[in-house]
């Protein structure tokens, strides 16, 4: 059963017709050719498909596209690109930090890691606690332990976690100063 929907992807409005069974991830990858978000498990268990969905980080493999008609999606390709759409070069401080700290190897989980980090930094700036916040009533300070916990929904089989954490911490500290 088909449905007509519209998605705004990395600043570009796209209209498409999808089978109701098509997930947001497959709509992006198979229908729109937007392959920055990756498919690692298709069940919300690895985080490689993470994008910013209406401004918040979300896995796209467990979301039906039809249920997100009208949504605004930012992938890692569009992150930091501003209104001009997707540029040719990495545009976001997280991109540069991941390169500098070698926060990836095979690169397959990386766009999801970066979108997750962008969403997570916003969550932390909004004062959201995490499972390792000593007192959830208090505003947490974003240290390495907080970043590790908050990024645990993004698996990296290459084991680039120390670089990922260093990259994100660097960007977070850059924002604070």
């Amino acid at each position: 059963m088909d449905a007509d929907i519209t998605l705004t992807v990395d600043g570009e409005r796209r209209a498409l017709t999808v089978d109701t069974r098509v997930t947001l991830l497959d709509a992006l990858r198979d229908r729109l050719g937007v392959t920055s978000p990756k498919k690692g498990c298709d069940h919300g268990q690895c985080g490689t498909c993470t994008v910013l969905l209406d401004g918040r980080r979300a896995t796209t493999c467990l979301a039906f596209a039809v249920a997100h008609d009208g949504a605004e999606i930012t992938t890692s390709a569009g992150l930091g690109a501003g209104d001009g759409g997707v540029g040719a070069e990495p545009a976001h401080p997280l991109h540069r930090a991941f390169l500098e700290h070698d926060g990836f190897q095979c690169g397959y989980c990386t766009p999801g890691q970066i979108c997750s980090a962008a969403g997570m930094l916003a969550e932390a700036e909004a004062g959201w606690p995490s499972a390792v916040t000593p007192d959830v009533a208090e505003r947490p300070a974003l240290d390495e332990a907080e970043i590790r916990e908050r990024m645990s929904g993004n698996l990296c089989r290459c084991g680039a976690y120390p670089g990922i954490v260093a990259a994100i911490l660097g960007v977070a500290e850059g924002r604070r100063t």
């Binding site: 979300a58 969403g119 606690p129």
Partner: peptide, 10 residues
Amino acid sequence: LSGASGQLRN
């Protein structure tokens, strides 16, 4: 906060 992940909790 101990359940799932940040992107799933959203």
